[in-house]
Design a protein around this nucleic acid. Structure first.
Lengths: 142, 142
DNA sequence: TTACATAGTTGTATTATACAATTATTTATA
DNA sequence: TATAAATAATTGTATAATACAACTATGTAA
């Protein structure tokens, strides 16, 4: 029945979040945690962005992003570029070392996922990626 | 290529954890948060368990579980049953109100997942549940 | 019987987060 | 155009979930 499928998804999702959280709280490769990673990911994909935009994209409060940004700035991973059009705002720009460490962290994550799915078929990996993306989109929109 | 599939999984997983965390930090149905939910889930599936076993199952520190248990006890969701074999330990037993609120919370979660996947095929839901489970198992074992 | 191990608790610290108040600036309105 | 409302970012404060370390009481092994 549909309901038992949902029950499985529901439970495994709770477990997943619990486990992944517990992994990422330990596995700090270099100086990056998951939050910082997602922020840098945004910058690496979209180029320089302001705190507001990042907060929207990451579904976080601006105060949270502001602190994350400050922390990344202190580590030399990003720097602030004034927005000459709107002088309240500025853009967070990835530094070279930020880019480097981001890539290193990403590589380490990929290696981890590679191991975790090394006995999966390509079809399964494909499906999993597809469904995760679909699910994330649903969360965002519904 | 295999690598781009992994990149998708890797990214969507980071996003998923971020989004789900942000949902569950707001959506406190009744008195339950995700941690408490998983603890009660353990009890509801396995029957009365001690702090140590719960901590192992949930991959948490015993101190963390101890506090969660204390908090659930204060809310009247569980109570402690002394273990007469090992007098250092006891079992956490679900109360009636604990069971009730657990079920209510679970129902609310299921409804949420129902909405999130209402335009999915049964096949997709099935696959998603299956792959999540497989992935969780991999995290635990690898 | 003494030493080591274990179940649980409590003290302390860290991290990620939100909300509220504040400052500086921009946009809209009267 | 002058003033009011909105907005970008920061900072103060609070909370929640977590870990590690120290401790107590009890159990197990040498």
């Amino acid at each position: 029945m549909k309901n038992s499928i949902l029950e499985r998804i529901e439970l495994e999702m709770a477990v997943l979040v619990r486990r992944v959280t517990s992994i990422t709280s330990k596995n700090k490769i270099g100086n990056l945690d998951r939050s910082a990673y997602l922020l840098l990911h945004q910058l690496s994909v979209h180029g320089p962005l302001g705190v507001k935009t990042l907060a929207d994209n990451l579904q976080l409060d601006t105060s949270t992003v502001s602190r994350q940004a400050a922390s990344l700035e202190k580590k030399g991973y990003v720097y602030k570029v004034p927005d000459h059009v709107d002088r309240r705002a500025y853009f967070l720009q990835l530094t070279e070392s930020g880019t480097e460490d981001f890539n290193e962290y990403k590589k380490a994550r990929l290696d981890r996922f590679e191991v975790l799915t090394d006995d999966w078929t390509d079809e399964e990996r494909q499906q999993f990626g597809h469904l995760l993306k679909k699910f994330n989109k649903a969360i965002l929109e519904k």
